[in-house]
Design a binder for these strands. Structure first.
Lengths: 158, 158
DNA sequence: CCGTGGCACGACATCCACGTAGTTTCATGG
DNA sequence: CCATGAAACTACGTGGATGTCGTGCCACGG
């Protein structure tokens, strides 16, 4: 049932260091929604959607965006990041952010923002990469030859 | 004669701190092309084009791009940043950067970069803002009522 | 030719975003 | 019920990008 992930596995899957995951959780960027840490010894538990958000952050960082900007962007993103992820694009412009559906609509946004820098991220690709990583790093039980990995999450209805 | 600008004035005009200008010069991001610093007491001298580059950097920073990314982007930019600035757009994608002319062409680039984050900057607006700042912060001689400020630089030929 | 101001420079101090090392504590399994 | 290991926590170090302060020195005006 869209199983959950430990901190370490989450970091592995999205391709970040555990230190980053930890730092982001402590600084309230992305906290595990299933189970947060409660003192030393406890275990964080991340949902699939959490992984998705983590992956978006990583993608933004790889693209050269400052973490500070990612924080502000997520403030806007969380509200809108509802169900339809595929073919939606995240547009960051300075301090604010918007979600755009159509590619043509995107062009208008870009042309509208005369001289304003804009960062565009296709959330579709992000989810694809995430799913690929989850499959790639699936736990390999030493005995059981993995029955049926429940891949192919469907948050959006195409 | 597209007059030159001192370090302090350059910083004022483009809206950055002198410390940033100094740091960028020392770390080889943007050196004054007219006269570089040669020991304490010397004076840096920036050209209009230098101001343009500085303004681009500031715009990128304001947009939340990491200075590190700006550095790599400028490596590509310097080669291409020839004459036609207006209506040209700088597209940063991860570590590389490209210059695009047409808006439609830009759309193709964006659609092509499936899932890859892209930062787009309209250089046109940057130049506009720069010119505005130069005019706004023009030196006001206490006696002479400014004869004819040579505004309206034309790097591009439409 | 010389005084002085403006500016480059050097040496810190700071904040962010982590990396590294070591400790603590919870959650199991035996 | 206790040993054990994995993971959270603490403490400290680091590199990048500046801010601050003080000094030194060149360039220009007189």
């Amino acid at each position: 049932m869209t199983q959950d992930y430990s901190g370490k596995r989450a970091a592995e899957i999205v391709g970040i260091t555990y230190r980053q995951l930890d730092y982001w959780a402590r600084t309230d960027l992305i906290r595990p929604s299933v189970a947060d840490a409660r003192g030393s010894g406890s275990r964080r538990c991340y949902s699939y959607r959490d992984l998705l958000e983590l992956k978006v952050v990583k993608t933004l960082l790889d693209a050269g965006i400052k973490l500070e900007s990612v924080r502000t962007a997520f403030a806007y993103l969380r509200d809108s990041l509802g169900e339809e992820i595929v073919s939606v694009q995240l547009v960051i412009s300075g301090g604010s952010a918007v979600l755009v559906r159509d590619g043509d609509e995107l062009v208008d946004v870009l042309k509208q923002g005369q001289g304003v820098l804009t960062s565009v991220l296709s959330l579709d690709g992000v989810q694809r990469e995430l799913d690929a990583a989850i499959f790639e790093l699936r736990p390999v039980p030493a005995d059981a030859p993995l029955p049926a990995p429940d891949q192919g999450h469907s948050l959006a209805g195409g």
